[in-house]
Design a protein around this nucleic acid. Structure first.
Lengths: 231, 231, 231, 231
DNA sequence: CATGAATGAGGTTTCATTCAT
DNA sequence: AATGAATGAAACCTCATTCAT
């Protein structure tokens, strides 16, 4: 349908921007290059964990080197500096998110369906990838320092594209009398604030909280869709 | 009413914990002590601004000294170390919040009224005190490092008290058929995530955004109360 | 006798150098000046205690101010800087020693008598004035930094005079067949090392040691006079 | 004999405590480790010299860095902090002393022989290693601040072991009618105060004193053994 | 490529001294 | 004379980055 063709377009746009770049996609690379990418990924794996636990400023290159079982100098064969490791870590997470988002856009028709799917998937992802989830939380704060930080533009640029697709779907839903007439941008922001920050507050309030994905999904959606008042 | 007597109690509990302590309350202090508090406040004023703009780790004591127009060593006559300056800054903000919260609890009866008042007041506060608002945003991330940081217990203890009061009111509202039956803790967390994080995302999305307090309040509450679906 | 005339001479020499200067000697000073000297002495009293406990580098002017119950700035009305307080503290102790030494020289005839008296008196003094004793211990180490420190020359100059008197007495004792023929300078140094350093090692070995003055005196002298071997 | 079997035991006790640990003992270490130890030793060499000249508090890390021709940060690859450098310096000296002491215990039978050997060797060591000698002098004062300083326990523990061995020998000598009946602990302390402190006073009295090892040894022992009086 | 020793700029903190009151 | 807030030089220590092996 229209939606599909839209998302196909989006998907390829994202790919062009490099957000979807993965190891598997390009079949032409040789063994050497594959090994290199593999090791790079090992470093990022260690980095995500540490950045999540301690934040950017309190993560030392020594820590990353030790955790990834490489020498400290070796890291500089894969990244120019600490910040680049950080960005690559974030990008990895964004790529995952992107992939998920694309799939959901392709597989849903109504806005309600979209919200249901994306909420559940995102919460599931956070539960499965605790470190990535915490990095996302930290990133939202850290992004405020963006005047100092190159590379943020690239990442925020990505946000805008996702938002554009979502905006279209919201406007469609309003036209279809599926939802009330609301400012689409505000709705996007409010919806976003109801997932990651909500899980974050849960995380703070209860350190070892085992999140019940179904229950939380249902709760968030019930408020988002119907509110709390009894009419 | 019951609510009032409850809140009176709460209020005094908070005061005992020192969260409400302000310069004015104790009339006995002399000129010297007033001057000292004034200068201390000057330092915090500068610090809040810098911590907000750059975060804790990227704010140097030199910066605070320069901004507050004191010598670097002078800061140590008012605070033991950098972290204490940070905590004092945060506490100032929490005190403000506490005062506001107490006033609203005393002046509202229904949960709907409470949400209306508190949402509007909080957004207004964020608009009026941009630096404090950003510090709150940063604090929510920073609190995840709390295992390292003494002093957080005090602050988080405060959260719990506010939550307890709110919980009572929510349960009352459910009993009164004002709202649907929901898990009160989840509701509190979700509501919280709809204010500061929502404004935060607005802030990120549009750097120099002039927030329209009335409009945002209305929007948040409309979703919180009624949801977005057309039935 | 010869001894007496000697010591009289010595005594006046020392006085001229200012080592014997005390509050009482000069009757001409008025109430204001007496008060000033009294307060100065209060400061030194506190300083000796702190310098003894913590050493020069680890004693802060704040500590001295607090212990002497004066304001920090006030100290600078009595001394130019920290080092001057230190020297004045030491000088006080040297004055005491000087007084004692003079008295003993006047009241003894043979070298044996002199050693008996001076050993006992010095140990007694150390027991009675623990802080002064420890300052002496520290001073002997600190004096090695004298290249940096003005004022040391004055103090070491004093040593030489005492040594000169003692030297004469030793040479006399050798001539009188009281003691074996020994190098007088060496004997002085060895004797000195048998009192303060010996007490010091006792102090280190047994922190709260209650020193038995008679016993220690007897032991030191028995070795000094007769050695340990059985012939 | 008995003595030998005693000392053999002692020797191995000290080794177990790590006081005898030296580079040479363990042949298994590789080139890298040897280089590391060599550089570590270079740093200590510079440190001992500076600590001796200026004392702990007046020796700056910059000084040590400059003197050892390393960057300031490099020092921290070998030691955790300034104090550790200090302790390592002291330990080096104690190790030397320990080795010497063990050798002498093994090679002497009577107490007289022991005193003769140890006095001569110690004075010789001080003459050959002026900086180490001065560090020992300073250490005896500094040890009084031990309540503040971790690591001293290790070092003082060492003292006790040496003392125990010496005590046994003294008691044996008394039983054998070699020396008069004296309190062994007192004798140990007095003997100790006759070496290092005596040399120290020599050093103070005459800055560039060239010490005549034979002469000083003979003098100290003559007093220790026979006293000064003519009977 | 892999390494980790070496580096020094840059951070926090201390404290003797000054000076306005 | 007495005070203590203000000061900033100087100390220790960290850690991202470089580079010789």
């Amino acid at each position: 349908m229209t939606c599909n063709s839209q998302t196909k377009l989006i998907s390829s746009t994202l790919k062009k921007n490099g957000f979807m770049q993965t190891v598997n996609e390009n079949k032409k690379i040789g063994r050497k290059e594959r090994e290199r990418l593999f090791k790079r990924r090992e470093i990022l794996l260690a980095a995500v964990d540490l950045f999540a636990r301690n934040g950017f400023e309190n993560t030392k290159l020594d820590d990353i080197a030790e955790a990834s079982e490489f020498g400290k100098g070796t890291l500089y064969n894969y990244f120019h500096n600490k910040e680049e490791i950080y960005f690559a870590s974030i990008k990895q997470i964004f790529d995952d998110y992107c992939e998920m988002h694309e799939r959901i856009l392709n597989n849903t028709e109504t806005l309600k369906e979209y919200f249901e799917e994306t909420t559940k998937s995102l919460i599931q992802y956070c539960v499965n990838n605790k470190s990535s989830f915490i990095m996302l939380v930290r990133f939202r704060t850290r992004i405020m320092d963006r005047q100092k930080l190159e590379g943020f533009n690239l990442l925020t640029g990505f946000y805008e594209q996702v938002n554009q697709m979502l905006t279209k779907r919201i406007k469609q839903a309003i036209k279809n009398n599926e939802i009330r007439k609301v400012d689409s941008e505000s709705l996007i922001l409010l919806y976003k604030s109801m997932i990651i920050p909500y899980l974050h507050l849960n995380f703070i309030a209860n350190d070892n909280l085992e999140i019940d994905v179904e229950k939380e999904t249902k709760f968030i959606l019930s408020v988002l869709f119907n509110g709390i008042l009894i009419k």
